[in-house]
């Protein structure tokens, strides 16, 4: 794992309490990287053809609207604030709606252009990620074949790192996008497996957490 980049990745991994695989052998070996990631590890895959960036100025986070790929967006939450990294969250709209419960794919119907995409972005952010203060995030939506679009966008930005969440399942026919991106990537790819099992964690802060309702009034009550 290249030094400066490894330090950055470690910064992501430590607060998330992930086990990080930092083997040079794995780093350039796709099959090995996928196996390590499928085992629940955070793996930085860096093929010889990919450049090694000095710093993380531009980070590309592809997403297909499924909770599985949202693991990558969760990772962004742990970026140190004010580190001058811009995140481009790239949503590649699939022609078929994802079947995973809780998925939130790109709009298939847009009644009012002036509103619907803005509101979709708001809901997408609330559903899948919260960014630390000071980290600019661009949420971009596009269509097409996912791997090609992701690699093309990574070249265009140009991205220093692609962060890809995935379901962690290596069966035939699965993780096709991830494999294709890793094979053609112009930069290192951080593989983030989706958390395994268990119910969705609930954080209950009460309505006071909602910005629309900050003030409180004492409620008067009396016996019946």
């Amino acid at each position: 794992m290249p030094g400066a980049l490894a330090a950055r990745v470690a910064a992501l991994a430590v607060p998330a309490n992930w086990k990080v695989t930092a083997s040079r052998a794995v780093a350039a070996d796709l099959a090995g990287a996928l196996h390590a990631s499928a085992a629940g590890r955070l793996v930085l895959f860096s093929p010889p053809s990919a450049g090694i960036p000095e710093r993380l100025a531009q980070m590309l986070v592809p997403h297909d609207g499924t909770p599985a790929t949202s693991a990558a967006l969760q990772a962004i939450r742990h970026l140190p604030p004010g580190n001058h990294t811009e995140v481009v969250a790239l949503h590649v709209a699939a022609t078929n709606a994802p079947s995973e419960p809780g998925s939130f794919p790109a709009l298939r119907m847009v009644d009012h252009d002036g509103h619907d995409w803005r509101e979709w972005r708001e809901e997408f952010r609330r559903r899948f990620f919260r960014c630390p203060p000071g980290v600019p995030v661009r949420l971009q939506v596009t269509a097409g074949l996912s791997p090609e679009v992701i690699v093309r966008t990574a070249r265009m930005i140009p991205a220093d790192l692609i962060v890809m969440g995935w379901g962690g399942v290596l069966k035939a026919g699965r993780a096709l996008t991830l494999r294709a991106v890793c094979e053609a990537t112009p930069c290192p790819v951080l593989l983030v497996p989706a958390p395994r099992g268990g119910r969705t964690h609930l954080r209950t802060e009460g309505a006071r957490g909602h910005p629309m309702y900050r003030r409180r009034a004492s409620i008067a009550h009396s016996g019946l």
Binding site: E205, G209, M212
Partner: peptide, 13 residues
């Protein structure tokens, strides 16, 4: 239809 005690996910209104 937000739940009465609210959650972080709520958009009560």
């Amino acid at each position: 239809g937000s739940i009465e005690e609210g959650t972080a996910e709520s958009s009560p209104a």
